[in-house]
């Protein structure tokens, strides 16, 4: 394992990089230690057209249905000058509450892809549970595929390729299990009204189900 700041080799339980002193507390002192809420796809640079964003979100829905444990978060925006993509991804995984269909997903099964179109750099940060599934050589191969699309300005294609590649990798490492019946019946279910711009009503605004006492026809 390497330090995300200076690329020095780290031991398994190192609390601080022996080379540069990098640790999570140093990141928190710079970005804060509060929890932040983040969508799965955050395009602060407005680099993705709406159609591409919608298509990408649909693919991410299907991706999360196939792999209930894992999620992928994408952040597109300019990074602070002192941070690199892996450092920001690490901080987001440790302090982010990602808006996934199942909030029960643990961040250690998460992967954050951070792209900075202005600086033309990008990187991945993965949680502890994915370190064996996505070792550094695998991430390097994925980045090579993405670079071909990014060099041509095809950001959506690069991210769709990333999703497709992750599906193949996770399917190879995972064990197939039968899905729940309702998921099999409704394969196209998006799952969350927020994906379509719908906000669920608060509990007080919901229409109450008719009770036995209020029913006029109740005898």
């Amino acid at each position: 394992m390497k330090c995300p700041h200076c690329q020095s080799l780290l031991a398994a339980n190192t609390a601080r990089c022996p080379g540069c002193g990098f640790c999570e507390q140093a990141l928190s002192s710079y970005l804060g230690d509060q929890w932040v809420r983040l969508e799965r796809l955050t395009d602060r640079a407005h680099a993705l057209p709406m159609a591409d964003s919608q298509r990408l979100l649909h693919q991410m829905d299907a991706f999360e249905r196939q792999f209930p444990q894992v999620f992928l978060a994408i952040y597109i925006g300019s990074l602070p000058p002192l941070l690199n993509p892996v450092e920001l991804g690490m901080w987001l995984l440790n302090h982010g509450a990602f808006s996934t269909h199942q909030f029960a997903k643990r961040n250690e099964y998460g992967m954050v892809c951070t792209l900075d179109p202005a600086a033309q750099r990008f990187g991945f940060a993965v949680g502890y549970a994915l370190e064996k599934v996505l070792p550094e050589p695998t991430l390097e191969r994925i980045s090579l595929e993405m670079k071909e699309h990014l060099a041509q300005g095809h950001l959506a294609a690069a991210l769709e390729g990333l999703l497709a590649r992750l599906e193949r990798i996770y399917r190879r490492h995972g064990q197939p299990q039968s899905a729940q019946l309702e998921e099999a019946i409704l394969p196209g279910r998006a799952g969350n009204p927020r994906d379509f711009g719908l906000t669920p009503l608060r509990q007080g605004h919901q229409s109450k189900a008719p009770t036995e006492t209020s029913s006029p026809h109740h005898s």
Partner: peptide
Amino acid sequence: FSGGAGFQTS
């Protein structure tokens, strides 16, 4: 949740 494992490039 994460120890900074990853890869970055440009």
